[in-house]
């Protein structure tokens, strides 16, 4: 099956979306909330493109990450109306996180240096892209989700309280494109979403590792038993060294 993206013929698979097909063909469509390993959300609207199918009277604007390819689909990624919509979208996102580098980089894409909208108070740099909630879901925890509607919409644990389901893995904080989720690590604790986690320590050298809750969760939900999570990287390597060293001496002395 073939589609045309900006006039270029591109071969696609039937499960492709416009975005995945374009990425494979090396055509850049800017995006923010798209992640190949997570469920598609269509939350940021940055990957907006125009599409045209046979029999239609005019082109339609759709999000490239969600739109499934059809035979002979025509896609326009840089038409005037696409650039205008994309610019407005990025402008609105920037009003929520004006100083953010990831958004500044995106805004360069549409040649528009600063947002014309007043900054949104209390947005705290969150652009509601839902990468954090989807990452949490992927981990199997579902500790955070969207609450509120309209201008009170935000990401938080249920009832805004300490999330029971959170294990302190930190995936949400690391995947956040604007870095707005506070993850505080001290030698003894990990703090995220207002919940303080006690850390596991290496049984040999005492170096701080993951949270105890994360270890317990991993033991219960992944294939590996508890003894995989007892030592830090350095101590594991030293243990292997001891075995290898013995081996090399045997080679030396025959």
């Amino acid at each position: 099956m073939f589609i045309r993206i900006d006039g270029k013929q591109v071969e696609v698979k039937k499960w492709d979306t416009v975005l995945s097909a374009a990425r494979r063909a090396g055509i850049q469509i800017p995006s923010l909330c798209y992640h190949p390993a997570l469920e598609t959300a269509g939350a940021c609207r940055v990957c907006i493109v125009e599409v045209f199918e046979k029999g239609w009277s005019e082109r339609k604007q759709v999000t490239a990450c969600e739109y499934k390819v059809q035979p002979d689909l025509e896609v326009y990624t840089r038409s005037e109306s696409v650039l205008k919509t994309r610019r407005t979208t990025i402008d609105l996102l920037m009003a929520r996180a004006p100083q953010n580098a990831a958004l500044q980089a995106l805004s360069k894409n549409v040649e528009y240096p600063q947002t014309i909208y007043p900054p949104v108070a209390d947005a705290g740099d969150c652009v509601l892209c839902l990468l954090c909630t989807r990452a949490c879901e992927q981990m199997g925890c579902n500790a955070i989700s969207v609450s509120g509607r309209g201008d009170t919409r935000k990401i938080e644990p249920p009832y805004g309280a300490n999330p029971d389901a959170c294990i302190g893995c930190g995936a949400c904080a690391r995947i956040c494109p604007t870095g707005c989720i506070a993850l505080t690590e001290t030698p003894a604790t990990i703090t995220i979403w207002g919940k303080v986690f006690e850390r596991l320590h290496c049984v040999t050298c005492g170096a701080p590792m993951m949270s105890i809750a994360y270890r317990d969760y991993a033991v219960a939900n992944r294939e590996l038993p508890e003894d995989y999570y007892t030592q830090c990287q350095e101590c594991k390597r030293k243990e292997v060294t001891a075995r290898f060293a013995g081996l090399s001496m045997k080679v030396h002395h025959g």
């Binding site: 992640h35 190949p36 390993a37 997570l38 990452a135 992927q138 981990m139 893995c169 930190g170 995936a171 690391r174 995947i175 590792m209 993951m210 994360y214 270890r215 991993a218 992944r222 590996l224 995989y228 999570y229 030592q231 830090c232 990287q233 350095e234 101590c235 594991k236 390597r237 292997v240």
Partner: peptide, 20 residues
């Protein structure tokens, strides 16, 4: 990298200490 969500479990799971 594109598919990684940064849960960091692989680092601790490696029994030989080779995930950084």
């Amino acid at each position: 990298d594109d598919r990684c969500i940064g849960c960091a479990l692989c680092e601790t799971a490696c029994p030989f200490g080779h995930m950084h």
